[in-house]
Design a binder for these strands. Structure first.
Lengths: 333, 333
DNA sequence: AAGGCTCCTGAGAGCGCTCTCACGGATATT
DNA sequence: AATATCCGTGAGAGCGCTCTCAGGAGCCTT
């Protein structure tokens, strides 16, 4: 198919130098006189030379590519909010700077997990884990040996891995604080799944906020999806008809809650205030537009890569990094 | 970091065979006696041997990985509908079957494009192009030399590349036919961007449908986004206050149109029927739930991979493949 | 029984690259 | 002026794997 890619050897011959020198120029190593460097560059251009990464990585033992591992449940959960794609975009953009490749892997089946484990042990320089689910055996497996791992989201179990997270606790707390400050008395929450760190931490933040203001915690659970939010809101309304505020751990659940509130005849925000979490695009178009806690998803991707690069460069293991969230005021609270 | 990966040499020694034989077993090549095969397998397991892909691909000239190239504009456009992630999921699942890797690349800048071009020429066995935008220089560049290319979505320009597409024309036409059958008289469309094949083809389908029913074409343009749909609907309403149906080339635009119709006091579907395209999750929750043309996004990804694999296997170049769409009836039409 | 098969196995030659090491020449040191 | 230092360069040894080729053992043919 391909006629035949030129090799370094040919570049060297054309430039009238040795392969070693050509290699030096191609890799930007110093110690080459300007004239020779120029000659090699010319040869590279005229031949259209592109280094063979396999040959290179065979000797360097680097692959210059890192894996982004996403557990399929995660992809499913985040399938309809742009979180995932935003993270990927951030990862991609940041890797591009370092001229590294992004290898995307999903782990739905145990076989897939096994595949990931085998694969990552040789094929990539590092692994970014975006599987925020509970006791994932992948955590411990990857942590034990093989390339360095950086998690997106604080791992709930397993060994202490490097991670970057969004300030879920702080964001949730600030949402509650805002509701308290706005004079709300009975503040409920629709929490996310408790096998995911975002679900856990946002509930913790809610509890901190209510405790600090001496409010009772009123908790219902959802799975981050719209429907689960609607159902949770219904049960909340049944149990606590007097509630006047709800913090939902995701925008989708908040939007579901909005529908439930509407159906129950409550006015938002007059009767019940609603605050979501994520700040997805739909939040802007909700009826009424949703007040929510914004999280910097692309930045999460970028920071994961940066942390990985620091680890790869052999620097001190970073302390976990937490990215700030921000309350975005719209009309529901 | 890594202690040191076992090599085939070590496996061979442990199994008491030559490297060649060990290689045969590892690669499942025939012509190895059962006893020897078993011995090698045992050695592989006990050593935890994983073949070094760099060494392998150095000699085989395959990388067993294929690139999915996404132009950033595309990612942006599709950022808030699950199309992109669905395609990726399909691609990923299908590649996994063939035990190939997915390398994800985005091309926002010209530099990025250059990078893609250089990269793909050596690093991957094939390229899946998901950049459905107009006159992308990448098309011709990739088509000319380098690995085989399969496009997702019919390329609008450039050389004839293999592609898989969704039946945009047929889907749009069937939407119009349905509206006609439901007795709608003045059927407008909110078309998508005309530098993207989905935008072009859905407009063609609309035109076919209206022409076949002797209806006048009433066209406004959007960019697939919600806001552009809302604006387009407003201008449609201003120009053609008597219209009684709208086909929007995306669900997001249809949802925007719904908002504009509501604001103008029209009832949906009583006064104006609305049909979207895509069947994103939001369509189910629109007010009222949106009738729309469903497209099989994950299947698109799978089929792209399958076509690529056929090409890689040296089979006859496939004719372009078109995947069926299906009208999903809800409440807006 | 001799030749011809087939079947299994091992030896060895690279794939294209990086990197260490040695070496010659120019420059700096004493 | 002699030695030490440095810089630019080339030779060559692999990195771990696949794959061709040759050869030995066992079987079938005639």
């Amino acid at each position: 198919m391909t006629p035949h890619r030129p090799t370094l050897e040919q570049v060297a011959k054309l430039a009238g130098v040795s392969r070693a020198t050509a290699s030096r120029v191609v890799n930007g190593a110093g110690g080459v006189s300007a004239g020779v460097r120029e000659a090699v560059r010319t040869a590279v251009d005229s031949l259209g030379y592109v280094p063979n990464p396999a040959a290179r990585s065979l000797v360097t033992r680097r692959t210059d590519s890192i894996a982004l591992v996403v557990s399929e449940p995660t992809a499913q959960v985040f399938g309809d909010d742009p979180f995932f794609i935003d993270v990927v975009r951030g990862v991609s953009a940041e890797l591009e700077i370092g001229d590294k490749q992004l290898v995307l892997m999903t782990t739905d089946t145990p076989a897939g997990r096994d595949r990931v484990q085998r694969f990552t042990s040789v094929h990539v320089d590092g692994v970014l884990l975006l599987s925020c689910h509970g006791n994932d055996p992948l955590y411990s497996a990857l942590g034990k040996q093989g390339p360095p791992v950086v998690c997106g989201g604080r791992p709930l179990f397993g060994p202490a891995l490097a991670y970057v997270d969004v300030d879920n606790v702080g964001g949730a707390r600030s949402a509650v604080e805002y509701l308290v400050g706005a004079g709300r008395r009975r503040i409920a929450t629709i929490a996310g799944p408790q096998d995911m760190n975002a679900g856990v931490d946002r509930l913790i933040g809610y509890r901190e906020g209510t405790a600090a203001a001496d409010r009772r915690a009123i908790v219902a659970y959802g799975d981050f999806s719209r429907d689960s939010g609607e159902r949770a809101m219904q049960s909340l309304l049944a149990d606590e008809p007097e509630l006047d505020a709800v913090f939902a751990a995701s925008d989708l659940m908040a939007i579901g809650a909005l529908a439930a509130l509407r159906n129950s005849g409550r006015r938002v925000p007059d009767d019940v205030a609603v605050v979501g979490f994520d700040d997805i695009e739909q939040a802007r178009y909700a009826e009424p537009p949703l007040t929510t806690v914004q999280q910097p998803s692309p930045l999460l991707g970028r920071e994961m890569v940066r942390m990985m690069q620091r680890i790869l460069a052999g620097e001190q293991p970073d302390s976990p990094k937490t990215l700030p969230t921000q309350l975005v005021l719209r009309s529901t609270a």
